[in-house]
Design a protein around this nucleic acid. Structure first.
Lengths: 329, 329
DNA sequence: TTGTAGGCGTTATCAA
DNA sequence: TTGATAACGCCTACAA
């Protein structure tokens, strides 16, 4: 049996409003009646219906998070960050996997929006113009994590600069034949920004850019593995590979192991992200640490501010990254 | 501006009931009026309010999933499984991290329940008696994944049998000093069942159980790493280690690498779970494959059945596992 | 300090 | 085929 506020009111011999008051603990209700009501609530095992409440108060205390794929290494950590903060502010989160598919993304957006989420967190890079326009029109509080688009609030790191720094590090170590395995070209972050950093570093160091040393990967292990096999089969193989994501970099390490190439002696490999596994593989991976958990946590914090109309000092947040030197370089 | 059904009705010059009918595409409405309404909906950009709808129809098309920690390797894959199926059946999922903390679990349960989720998926092993009782009392559709408890529907694998098989495999390979790194003793699955399988295998093979060869881990990398260091420092170190989870096993591999112990020649290490990383590390890990995605998918499918009062052929589903032999053994 | 009543946006029953 | 209207469970003026 499931009871509602009316049942409680009857049982306690008071009006509905009084029950509502004690549930939302308003200060006005007399201690004595409060106790009566509490007792009735206890006895009936009454739980307020948040749906009914939401209909009235026009917020649901829920937010939606759209990510490409939770089973991809990078996301769980940031989702954890947003969930922890969400929890603190009493939000609960809807999780949706979009697979970087604009259609699926739009469809999820519609569902979430009909379910009246108070806000949205978007990750990945399939942010279509259609979705963007709809967000603007509906004015639904939104923050982007890990990407950036137009004037939407976002929390990111400077991918170009970080990549440049990483390649610089390699150069300082004496490497001259530095290869890169990039993300997909249409990917603004992994495919474009990180590649851009690579080119800039070479340029600054006056090393000539050699397109044979660049292979387009994706973001998964397999493409790193394949890319490495290709690179390592070159007549003049690279002495270092900068890989646009850790997951791919772990594929590179795997390939090098198979070819019996010692790391870092004859091949240095460095990644990007600082995914949990990167410190656990052998050799542990040198990488750029994206503060994933913090990105999630800060993103969520920003979102609560937007939801509550708290003015933001800055709408585009760029977090610090750091180069973590481990064994692979 | 956000419009409701009334606005649409006015704009289309019909009653709200008619609008409701076309939204839920009832067959009775005349094609002509339907078009009028559709046009109004289009022009206003009307989106039905699912909250209001839920209040009336008494279901929310949302389910909650309680897991220990999404940033732990094991869960994302199964969450993905449930989400995919949930999506097919038009459910959206609330994700909650309980950290194996009964209090947090209970608190999330209450929130989800107040938000009127149609069902619940529970993972991890902190299912407290209190939670169990509440689930029973409220009769909220629930399925357990990866664990089992009383008469609640569940989808699992036979952990005892799988572990036994794994240790047997080691024995057949000629190992006699087989160590184990278990989960926490209070963990019914990783700590108890998998340990039980280990003991049974030894017994059947008439190998004497040596408590020095057993160390209690947790479920994380670090405890595997530490456990291995301890085991490998023994006067007579084991020739094989059965590790109760892949994440810990990867820690063992790491430790062995550091000690310059070659795998599988002087040390075989085998894990349990077949987490994504297990095939990517070097040497690739021999392990028991839990069908994680399927466990999620099937669990969700069962849940939809329970929600719709479809009778279930079986309430305790035990899935097949398989031993994947790779390089580490 | 408490109660009455209207309304949140839908759906569904019943007439028309 | 359509339209009034009463719920759904709660919150919140406003009145008492």
């Amino acid at each position: 049996m499931i009871f509602n506020i009316k049942d409680v009111a009857k049982k306690a011999g008071v009006s509905i409003s009084t029950v509502s008051r004690v549930v939302n603990d308003s200060k006005v209700v007399k201690e004595e009646t409060k106790q009566k009501v509490l007792k009735a609530i206890e006895e009936l095992g009454y739980k307020p219906n948040a749906i009914a409440r939401s209909l009235k108060v026009k917020n649901t205390k829920t937010i939606g998070i759209l990510i490409p794929d939770i089973s991809n290494q990078f996301y769980p950590e940031v989702v954890r960050g947003v969930e922890d903060i969400a929890n603190i502010y009493h939000y609960t989160i809807f999780l949706c996997n979009t697979d970087l598919n604009a259609e699926k993304e739009m469809q999820y957006f519609n569902v979430l929006t009909e379910k009246q989420v108070d806000g949205l967190i978007l990750m990945g890079n399939a942010l279509s113009e259609e979705l963007f326009q709809t967000i603007k029109k509906l004015k639904i509080p939104t923050v982007l994590i890990g990407t950036d688009y137009e004037d939407l609030p976002s929390v990111t790191i400077d991918n170009v600069k970080a990549s440049q720094e990483m390649v610089n590090y390699l150069i300082k170590k004496g490497h001259e034949r530095i290869a890169m395995i990039t993300g997909k070209q249409r990917d603004p972050v992994i495919g474009v920004d990180r590649f851009e950093g690579y080119k800039r570093a070479l340029k600054e160091a006056k090393l000539t850019y050699n397109e044979k040393l660049v292979v387009e990967g994706g973001y998964r292990f397999k493409s790193g593995y394949d890319g490495a096999k290709k690179l390592l089969a070159l007549d003049e193989p690279p002495s270092a590979i900068f890989v646009a994501s850790d997951e791919m970099a772990i594929g590179v390490i795997r390939a090098a192991h198979e070819l019996n190439i010692s790391m870092p002696e004859t091949l240095a490999v460095v990644g990007f992200d600082n995914v949990d596994m990167s410190g656990k593989v052998y050799p542990a991976l040198t990488t750029i640490a994206q503060p994933m958990y913090e990105m999630g946590a800060i993103g969520m914090r920003v979102l609560t501010k937007i939801i509550n109309d708290t003015p933001l000092e800055e709408t585009k947040i760029c977090l610090d990254y750091s180069l973590i030197e481990r064994e692979s370089s």
